[in-house]
């Protein structure tokens, strides 16, 4: 296992001294997890493995853009892997602008003042709050993240009115907001 702090140390070691041993440890920890995550969307093991590898190579390239005071290493990896999944699964046969160039722009150093802090204890707290969501709310959230489905597609699949799915999402987000803001004040 790798703690959030250890993972952040490893990414910084890549940024400051191109540390290959640090990269290997990150790879060993995250590549299988990202692969498992991507396979939940129905991707075959080879494709999922490739997305995981592309994501880890991106971690190497962009290590200097990681800011441990703003986001956890897992969150940062999630956004990179998500973009690689979009590039890989949707854009197999068409030339396009890399999703990384615009969907989650790696925040420039002088422009991230508005970024909220979701690292350290706040990240741990968010995980606890996630555990407190209702099964109905969690189902919708997991379908979105794992299966790459819009709320409209989720409503169709679950045969629920669109309004029901929207209100589950809004209630889930309200609970996260409430819990995190109570801690901040």
């Amino acid at each position: 296992m790798l703690s959030a702090d250890e993972a952040a140390d490893l990414i910084e070691a890549i940024a400051t001294r191109q540390d290959r041993a640090a990269f290997s440890r990150l790879f060993q920890h995250f590549a299988p997890r990202v692969k498992a995550f991507i396979m939940r969307s129905g991707a075959d093991p080879e494709a999922a493995q490739e997305v995981a590898q592309e994501a880890l190579i991106m971690v190497w390239r962009k290590a200097a853009s990681f800011d441990r005071t703003k986001a956890s290493a897992s969150t940062w990896l999630y956004t990179i892997a998500r973009n690689k999944r979009i590039d890989h699964l949707r854009r197999n046969n068409r030339p396009a602008i890399d999703t990384d160039d615009w969907l989650t722009v790696f925040a420039p150093e002088d422009e991230d003042a508005d970024k909220s802090v979701l690292a350290g204890q706040t990240y741990t707290r968010l995980k606890e709050l996630l555990g407190g969501l209702s099964a109905d709310q969690m189902l919708v959230i997991e379908k979105a993240f794992f299966e790459d489905k819009t709320h409209t597609a989720i409503a169709e699949e679950l045969k629920l009115p669109l309004g029901t799915v929207k209100s589950r999402i809004r209630l889930a987000l309200a609970r996260l907001r409430e819990g995190l803001e109570r801690d901040e004040s």
Partner: peptide, 16 residues
């Protein structure tokens, strides 16, 4: 940012 952190938490939870 919060939703991305949910994505991170789901990756952390992957049994591998």
């Amino acid at each position: 940012d919060r939703l991305n952190a949910v994505g991170g938490a789901l990756i952390d939870r992957e049994p591998v």
